[in-house]
Computed example of a mutant assay.
Amino acid sequence: MSVSVRLPRGMWVIVAALFGTVLICGAVLLDARLNATVEQRVSEGTAVTGRVVQVERFRVSRSSSVIRMTVAYAVDGVAYQERFSSALDEGRHHSGEELTVYVDRNDPSRAATADRYATEDLLLKLPILLGAAGGLAIVAALVWIKTGGRPPGTR
């Protein structure tokens, strides 16, 4: 037995607009939470010296890529080598460079730099993707309203 739910004509516009709004709100909340986490790590973490081992451009899609850097550092004699990225993706670091890394005292594999690179890596890009998806859903709903449900260019 299959159950089919059919929305009244045009109701999907409301659903798409609401879905887009929820995605954008989720993006804003996640971005705020990630920023607070990075700021807390920098302000309360233990400062150690790290060395950039590698800087790479990681392709997310055909038109989008992010800069990721691998940083080696040691905490209490234990060596760590972690990937860092930034929501701003400025790519200002280079291999061999020394930098200050602020590590979480409870989990030294979690770290950040003062210029907002952090080991949350690609999670820092998620708010941008959620916001873009939400914006596209809202634009699709607006196009549907403007065209009355007809493909653009038809009457």
Rank of each mutant, 00 (worst) to 15 (best):
R51V: 13
D107L: 08
A111W: 03
V60Y: 12
L130H: 03
N35E: 15
S2Q: 10
S61D: 12
A32F: 13
C25I: 13
I24E: 06
D31I: 01
A137Q: 03
I24R: 01
V48N: 08
I24G: 00
P108V: 06
P152M: 06
A16F: 13
A87I: 03
L126S: 04
S95V: 13
T21Y: 11
V71W: 12
S95M: 14
G91I: 02
V28N: 05
M69R: 05
E120I: 01
I145F: 07
G148C: 02
Q81A: 07
M11V: 07
V52Y: 10
T37S: 12
S65R: 11
V78A: 15
L29H: 07
V55C: 10
E98W: 10
L122W: 01
S4V: 12
T119V: 06
M11F: 12
D115H: 01
L122Y: 02
G91H: 07
V28K: 10
A47L: 04
P108W: 10
H94W: 07
H93M: 07
F19D: 02
P108E: 04
V66P: 00
A79C: 01
Q54N: 15
Y102K: 06
A36S: 10
T154H: 12
T100Q: 08
D89H: 05
E120H: 12
S2V: 13
L123R: 12
P127I: 01
V48H: 06
Y102M: 03
S65C: 04
A17L: 10
M11N: 06
V53L: 13
S4D: 14
A17K: 06
P152G: 03
Y73G: 05
A132C: 05
A72F: 09
L18I: 15
R41I: 05
R83V: 13
L126H: 02
S95E: 15
A111E: 00
V139K: 03
G131S: 04
R41A: 09
V22S: 09
R57I: 09
L129T: 13
D121Q: 08
G50W: 08
A111Y: 02
E82I: 05
Y73L: 05
L23D: 08
L29K: 14
R62T: 12
T21A: 15
T70Y: 10
R83N: 10
G96W: 00
K146F: 15
E90G: 08
P108N: 04
I24W: 05
D115V: 00
P127C: 01
R59D: 11
V15S: 07
V52F: 13
D31G: 04
R150N: 08
D89R: 06
R155S: 11
G10N: 07
C25V: 15
A27V: 07
T100L: 09
T154Y: 08
T119C: 05
